[in-house]
Design a protein around this nucleic acid. Structure first.
Lengths: 204, 204
DNA sequence: CCTTGACTTGACCATATGGTCAGAAATTCC
DNA sequence: GGAATTTCTGACCATATGGTCAAGTCAAGG
């Protein structure tokens, strides 16, 4: 009877190192493009040792995706039906942009997955994301019906928020190349622009 | 002296079939994820025969990318400094959305490339895209200075247009899953929503 | 110190993959 | 029809890759 004892410090440390390395590699190359050797090297472990902590490449990827979904949905969950409509939407935009700035690799991991047809997370999307979006869309539609927001199809409004904010993580290379920036200063410019854009669009 | 004679019908037909198949595969799996066997099968050719027409996997990808850039930049080129500002921008939005609807694979090929750090097209971006964006941004800034457009940092305006329109191609799976659509009807809804969004944002 | 169990690794395997090559089949040209 | 040229293919190769395994190392408890 090997009952699972609490994670040892070594387990904790190495699992973290693996997931950190895997995030780096998967987000840059996609699932098929990533190799265990790359991940192992970045994690500072041997390949067999990787496979001591995770049973397969799939499992590493699955662990990352699982941890990702919650973080990715939370900003929308926080949209408060009781708040002031325009400010609630703007706060959501800011939270999403924040994620792009602070967790660009997670954003790209997600983008890679969707781009490739979402084979590993389609059920999570229809099972979790869709209901949440429908719920919040109803809230937004109500605000619009009450005249507290200018009318705009709520689903497409949400899509546009996802698109404009995630763009700064997913297309980071392009954004930097076009702006000619090295640093992250464009994020505050982006926030300013997006806040103006959505305020004008949504103020009744 | 084998001087290159004009392409035969067979060459024409097979090269096209290969590029068509490669577009399908590269756009779905990225460069590293795609395999010559997949491309060969989709093109209805044997792998050695593929390599009779193109010297390497790289070359096939390069041929696709080269053909892509022009199509991708043209809609922005058409932005006319002599036109009516708001309508010019809206026409640009419509053209970009049109591309997402009609050439989603090309959009995803591009997205894959950028996501993975744009190793094969970064120079094209800084060499062609950036100057074009800077030029058109100047036009837009001028319109804003003249009071013919509401002010908004032009580069970020353009980013937002790219993001919102390409989203419908790149994140197609997610869009469909959230909306629950099978068909393409959401494209006309998207156009309506984006036109409203940018009209409100930009009308002085 | 020594046993126990967690941790680590070199060597290895089967398969996939990009690419080559000699020659066969088709096509074109005279 | 037959030579010349283009098109095509089976067999093959070197390397990369996900994964296994037996045996080793190491840390902690007794």
């Amino acid at each position: 009877m090997t009952r699972p004892r609490a994670q040892t410090r070594i387990q904790q440390k190495n699992s973290e190192a693996i997931l950190e390395a895997a995030l780096e590699v998967f987000s840059q190359s996609g699932f098929r493009g990533a190799t265990l050797d790359q991940i192992a090297e970045k994690a500072g472990l041997s390949k067999p040792n990787l496979l001591y902590y995770f049973p397969s490449k799939e499992a590493i990827h699955a662990a990352l995706i699982a941890g990702l979904l919650k973080v990715w949905l939370d900003p929308l969950r926080e949209l408060d039906a009781g708040g002031e409509p325009v400010e609630e939407i703007l706060a959501y935009v800011r939270r999403k942009l924040q994620l792009s700035r602070d967790f660009p690799r997670e954003s790209r991991l997600f983008a890679n997955e969707i781009l490739q047809g979402a084979p590993r997370i389609l059920e999570a999307i229809t099972g979790e994301l869709k209901p949440l979006v429908d719920e919040k869309s109803a809230v937004i539609a109500k605000w619009m019906a009450e005249g507290r927001l200018a009318p705009l199809e709520p689903h497409h409004l949400i899509f546009s928020i996802w698109a404009t904010t995630q763009h700064y993580a997913d297309f980071d290379v392009q954004v930097r190349a076009v702006l000619g920036h090295e640093d992250d200063r464009h994020f505050s410019q982006a926030e300013e622009a997006l806040v103006i854009l959505y305020r004008r669009t949504l103020t009744p």
